[in-house]
Amino acid sequence: MKFSIQINEGPYQHQASDTAYQFAKAALAAGHEIFRVFFYHDGVNNATRLAVPPQDDRNVAKQWSELALENDLDMVVCIAAAQRRGIMDAAEAKRQGLDADNLMAGFRISGLGQLIEAGIESDRLIVFGA
């Protein structure tokens, strides 16, 4: 079956991203397809590569990144939510005249239409949030 996942909360503050990650891993292990993971609201903060959690803690952004690269997942960060919160890829940072970018490998920035499309194209969409 084809799933999509929406994540509304950032890492560490709330369990939503952790639960979504465990769900995604289990879905892939069970042979399901994940059409897209869409990061919205503070969920866009899962996509920064500049987070440095303590060594004995999980690295949420890195976990997602590795899962995406290993399984060829499409992980989309909402551009409007990302711009509000300072999550930028190199192209967008340049376009905005900013001196830095921070998007982790495995994520891409795109529009809200990607969320609607995920709903249309998937058999199930499940939302994780606060």
Binding site: F23, A26, H32, D123, I126, G129
Partner: peptide, 20 residues
């Protein structure tokens, strides 16, 4: 249920309402 059971529940039902 474990996470696999969670996935199965999502698959078995028609859709999901997350009461956030």
């Amino acid at each position: 249920v474990d996470y696999e059971g969670f996935v199965n529940l999502v698959a078995e039902h028609d859709s999901v309402q997350s009461w956030l």
